[in-house]
Amino acid sequence: MQWTINGQVREAEVDFRTSLLDLLREQFQLSGTKKGCNQGACGACTVLVDGERINACLALAVQYQGRTITTVEGLAENGTLHPVQAAFIEHDGFQCGYCTPGQLCSAVGMIGELERDHPSAVTADLAANGIEWNRDELRERMSGNLCRCGAYNGIADAIAAGLAKELGEELGEELDEELGEEIAR
């Protein structure tokens, strides 16, 4: 079986029971992706598959053959941290660090969803073009990633700051006042 993981084609023969999470952690020693509950309830195992965030614990490795997978180890490029990674350090978006890889992959996946204009449960007008996006949107969209240390404020601050850097002016125009203030802070 074959997967493209962080830009590299990787091969392994796996037990059909093996989750994508255990494939990463045990077979490929990519232990950055974490196991918090192994039942899709905490988000610590979040990875990107073809750019979309999923819970690797509920994914059977065999079902994801041939797919392109990005883990926390693959977010930095050429040794430069992804803007969201750097912002997590600056804004103290973690304490123990165990949920952090999942938070980061989830945040990067969420940025893609925003770019695609994907709605959330708190989007006021589902039919409107363009999500009017604010801190509640961010909080709702990141609610699939638990943090027991309670770094939620720092996580939200970090993602808002990282987003501004990542999306630059394109998003700048859409930023509402609340988020703008947030980033300025």
């Binding site: 899709g40 965030r53 999923i54 509920l58 994914a59 996946g109 039919a127």
Partner: peptide
């Protein structure tokens, strides 16, 4: 399904029900 423009404008109850369930990660799967 929740992101489909036709569902969002013609059947918002469906989009909102889906979006209020589980997490983004699970909805992607």
């Amino acid at each position: 399904l929740a992101g489909d423009a036709r569902v969002r404008s013609r059947y918002p109850v469906l989009a909102r029900a889906i979006l209020s369930g589980a997490s983004a990660q699970i909805r992607n799967m």
